[in-house]
C-alpha cells in the first residue's frame, strides 16, 4: 500500500467514526437536549437559570434511580412495572419505622436525624429488595411473563402502602434540608442529586464493564445461548430484579426526603416515566440493547420538556402528549437505525 492509500484509508476510517458518532443514540440525545434548551430559553429567558436546572435535576433524581434499574431489566428482555408503587411502599414503610420506632417527629432537625435517616434508607432499600425478590420468584418459579408478574406486585405494593399508611402520608420532620442543602439559586446540584449521580455512574460501570452487565445483555439477546454457555439464567434474573427493586427503594427514600413524608401515592406512574426514559435512551423492549448514558439523557429530556412547557405557560395536560410524541419518535429513530444497519 502506498502512503496516499494509507492516508486515504485512515481518512475513510475517520469519516466512518464520525458518521457512527453522528448516528449514535447518545449524540442525538445530547443534540435534542441542546435544542430544547435553546427553544425554551428563547421563549422564556428565565428558563436558563440555576434554579430551573435545580428543579429539573431534583425531579430527574428519583426517576433516574428507577430508570437505571429499569435499564438492566429491559436489556435482559423483561420489564418492571412495580418500581413506581415500590417508591410509595418503601417511603411509607421507612417513614412509619422512623416515626414509630425511631421517634422521628416534626420537631427534629435534619442534623439530629441523620442516624434515623440512615436506618430509614436501609429499611427503604430492604423493602425494594423484597419486592424485587417477589418479582423474580414469580418470573422464575411460575414462568409468569415479567409484564404480568410485576403488574401484580405493583398492585400489591400499592395496596400494602395504603394499608400501612391508612391512606394518608406519614409525615415526620418536614425539612431535612438534604434536597436543597446547597443554595438552589446558584447551584443546580443538591446533595441528594449528587448521590444519585454517583449511584448512576457506579451502576453504569457495572452494566458496561462487568460480567454482571454482560450476562444481562446475553440473556436479553438470546437466553438459550446464555444458558447453553453455562450462565444460570434464573439466578441472574433474580439479581436484576433485586437491583431494580433496591434502586426503587432508594428512590423511595429520595422522594421521602423531598416531601418530608412517606406517601402511598408518591411513586404512582413513575414506572412509566422510567420506561419512557429507557426507551428514549435507545434500549429495545425486545432485549439485548440499551446504554446507561442513553437512559440518563432520556430521563433528563423528559423533565426538561416538562418543566420547559410549564415555564412557557403550556397547560400541564399537554405534557403527557409531548412525552408520548417523544417516545414514538425515539422508537421510530431506533427502527430506522437498525434498518439502515441491516441493509448497509
Amino acid at each position: 500500500m502506498t502512503d496516499s492509500h494509507l492516508a486515504q484509508s485512515a481518512r475513510s476510517a475517520r469519516l466512518q467514526q464520525l458518521t457512527q458518532l453522528a448516528t449514535n443514540q447518545s449524540t442525538i440525545l445530547v443534540g435534542v437536549m441542546i435544542l430544547l434548551t435553546i427553544v425554551f430559553s428563547s421563549l422564556e429567558p428565565k428558563f436558563l437559570s440555576a434554579l430551573t436546572a435545580n428543579n429539573i435535576l431534583t425531579d430527574w433524581g428519583s426517576v433516574a434511580l428507577i430508570a437505571v434499574g429499569q435499564t438492566f431489566v429491559i436489556i435482559s428482555g423483561g420489564i418492571d412495572l412495580s418500581v413506581g408503587a415500590t417508591i410509595g411502599l418503601s417511603g411509607v414503610v421507612s417513614a412509619w419505622t422512623m416515626a414509630n420506632v425511631l421517634g422521628v417527629d416534626q420537631t427534629i432537625k435534619g442534623g439530629e436525624a441523620s442516624g434515623a435517616l440512615l436506618i430509614g434508607t436501609l429499611v427503604s432499600v430492604a423493602v425494594g429488595v423484597l419486592v424485587g425478590l417477589t418479582n423474580a420468584f414469580l418470573i422464575n418459579r411460575f414462568k409468569i411473563v415479567p409484564f404480568i408478574a410485576t403488574l401484580s406486585t405493583m398492585g400489591a405494593a400499592l395496596g400494602f402502602s395504603v394499608i400501612i399508611s391508612k391512606g394518608a402520608p406519614i409525615g415526620s420532620a418536614s425539612n431535612f434540608a438534604l434536597i436543597s442543602a446547597i443554595d438552589p439559586k446558584v447551584n443546580p446540584f443538591s446533595w441528594a442529586v449528587i448521590v444519585v449521580i454517583i449511584v448512576v455512574v457506579i451502576v453504569g460501570l457495572f452494566l458496561h464493564k462487568s460480567r454482571f452487565g454482560l450476562y444481562t445483555y446475553a440473556i436479553g439477546s438470546n437466553s438459550f445461548a446464555a444458558r447453553a454457555a453455562g450462565i444460570n439464567v434464573e439466578r441472574h434474573l433474580t439479581k436484576v430484579y433485586v437491583l431494580s427493586g433496591a434502586l426503587a427503594g432508594l428512590a423511595g427514600m429520595y422522594v421521602y426526603l423531598r416531601l418530608g413524608a412517606g406517601s402511598p401515592s408518591s411513586g404512582t406512574g413513575r414506572e412509566l416515566d422510567a420506561i419512557a426514559a429507557v426507551v428514549i435512551g435507545g434500549a429495545s423492549l425486545m432485549g439485548g440493547v440499551g446504554r446507561m448514558l442513553g437512559t440518563v439523557l432520556g430521563a433528563l429530556i423528559l423533565f426538561t420538556v416538562q418543566s420547559g412547557l410549564i415555564m412557557i405557560g403550556v397547560a400541564p395536560d399537554w405534557k403527557k402528549v409531548v412525552v408520548a410524541v417523544l417516545i414514538a419518535a425515539a422508537v421510530a429513530v431506533q427502527t430506522l437505525q437498525s434498518k439502515n444497519r441491516r441493509t448497509a
Partner: peptide, 10 residues
Amino acid sequence: YQDSGLAPHL
C-alpha cells in the same frame, strides 16, 4: 447448536 447458539447483540 444447530441454531441460536450465539447471542447476536454481543
